[in-house]
C-alpha cells in the first residue's frame, strides 16, 4: 500500500491513455514484480547439439537430470535440431512464409520433448503441452521436473526476419521467455560447446571461448555466428527477472549439476 500514489496514477493512465503512451509505459515500470516460480531453474536441452546425437549424449544427461531434480526443481525445454533444419530448407525452397516454418519447427521440438519424456517417465517426469502449463507447479512440486517443447507458439504470428524466412524466435527464445514469465531462478542452455566463442568453433579453429560477457558487449561485437539465438539478447534487455543466462557443455559430465548450483562452468551472458 506504500505506493498507493504511484499505483493510483498508473490506474488512471491505464483508463485514459493509449497503451503505447510513454507516460503509461513508464508508470507500468513501477508495478511490483512477483516471481511465480522463484525456485525453479529452466534448462534447455539442445536439439542439434544434444538430442540428435542419440543415446550416447542423451542417456548420461537424463541420469544427470534425474539426480539434479532431487535438489533443484527444473523445467526442461527441448530444442528442435536437424529435422527442423531440413523442414525449414524444404519450406523455404517452396516459398512458404515464416509462419509456416514456425509451425513445422515447433513439431520437431515437440518430438524431442516426447522422446525425452519417455526416457524420464519412470522417474515421474511428465511432458506438458501449451494448454497444460497451469499444471506445471504441481508437476514440479510432486516430481521435481517437467518437460516442455521449447518452440514458442507464435505460429502464423511469428516475427518475419529482415532477410530470409527462418523464424527468428525459436527454442532458445521460447525457453528464455518461460524462465522470465515464471520468474525462474536461472536459465541454463545445455549445448555441445563449452560456451560462447568468438566464432563457430565447429568451423573456425581460431575461435576462442568467451567465459563472461554482457548483452551490450555481445551486440557490439556483432559476431557473424552465435551459440544463442540473437533475439534472446534483445529479450534479455527487457527482462525483469532473468538477467543472465549460462551456456554450458552438456557432453561434459557433471556440468549441469554444477551450473544448477550456481557455478560458472560455461559462458555467462548478462543483461548488465
Amino acid at each position: 500500500m506504500e505506493d498507493a500514489g504511484t499505483s493510483g496514477a498508473l490506474q488512471s493512465l491505464l483508463m485514459s491513455r493509449s497503451l503505447s503512451d510513454p507516460a503509461l509505459l513508464a508508470a507500468s515500470a513501477t508495478a511490483p514484480d512477483y516471481r511465480i516460480l522463484p525456485d525453479v531453474s529452466v534448462l534447455k536441452i539442445g536439439g542439434q547439439s544434444v538430442i540428435d546425437r542419440g543415446r550416447v549424449a542423451v542417456y548420461p544427461i537424463v541420469e544427470e537430470l534425474v539426480e539434479a531434480k532431487r535438489s533443484f526443481p527444473i523445467l526442461i525445454g527441448t530444442g528442435a535440431g536437424t529435422r527442423a533444419r531440413h523442414a525449414y530448407a524444404l519450406a523455404m525452397e517452396l516459398g512458404l512464409p515464416t509462419g509456416v516454418l514456425t509451425d513445422v519447427g515447433a513439431a520437431v521440438s515437440g518430438q524431442n520433448a516426447a522422446m525425452l519424456g519417455h526416457l524420464m517417465a519412470r522417474h515421474g517426469v511428465p511432458v506438458v503441452g501449451d494448454t497444460a502449463f497451469g499444471a506445471i507447479p504441481l508437476y514440479v512440486a510432486e516430481c521435481g521436473a517437467a518437460i516442455f517443447a521449447g518452440m514458442p507458439p507464435y505460429d502464423m504470428w511469428q516475427h518475419v526476419p529482415a532477410e530470409g524466412v527462418i523464424p527468428p524466435y525459436r527454442t532458445d527464445a521460447g525457453c528464455f521467455l518461460v524462465a522470465e514469465v515464471y520468474g525462474a531462478r536461472q536459465m541454463i542452455y545445455v549445448k555441445d560447446e563449452d560456451g560462447l566463442y568468438t566464432a563457430n568453433p565447429k568451423t573456425d579453429k581460431n575461435a576462442t571461448l568467451i567465459p563472461e560477457i554482457t548483452v551490450e558487449e555481445l551486440i557490439e561485437l556483432d559476431l557473424p555466428d552465435l551459440v544463442l539465438e540473437r533475439p534472446v539478447l534483445e529479450l534479455m534487455r527487457g527482462a525483469r527477472h532473468v538477467k543472465s543466462v549460462q551456456v554450458i557443455n552438456g557432453l561434459r559430465p557433471g556440468l549441469i549439476s554444477r551450473a544448477l548450483r550456481g557455478e560458472h562452468v560455461g559462458t555467462i551472458i548478462s543483461a548488465q
Binding site: 509505459l25 508508470a27 521467455l177 518461460v178 534487455r237 527487457g238
Partner: peptide, 13 residues
C-alpha cells in the same frame, strides 16, 4: 497467441 511467451518490453510491463 503469444500468451506467456510475450516479450518483456524494454520499458515497463
Amino acid at each position: 497467441p503469444y500468451g506467456i511467451y510475450e516479450f518483456p518490453p524494454t520499458v515497463g510491463k
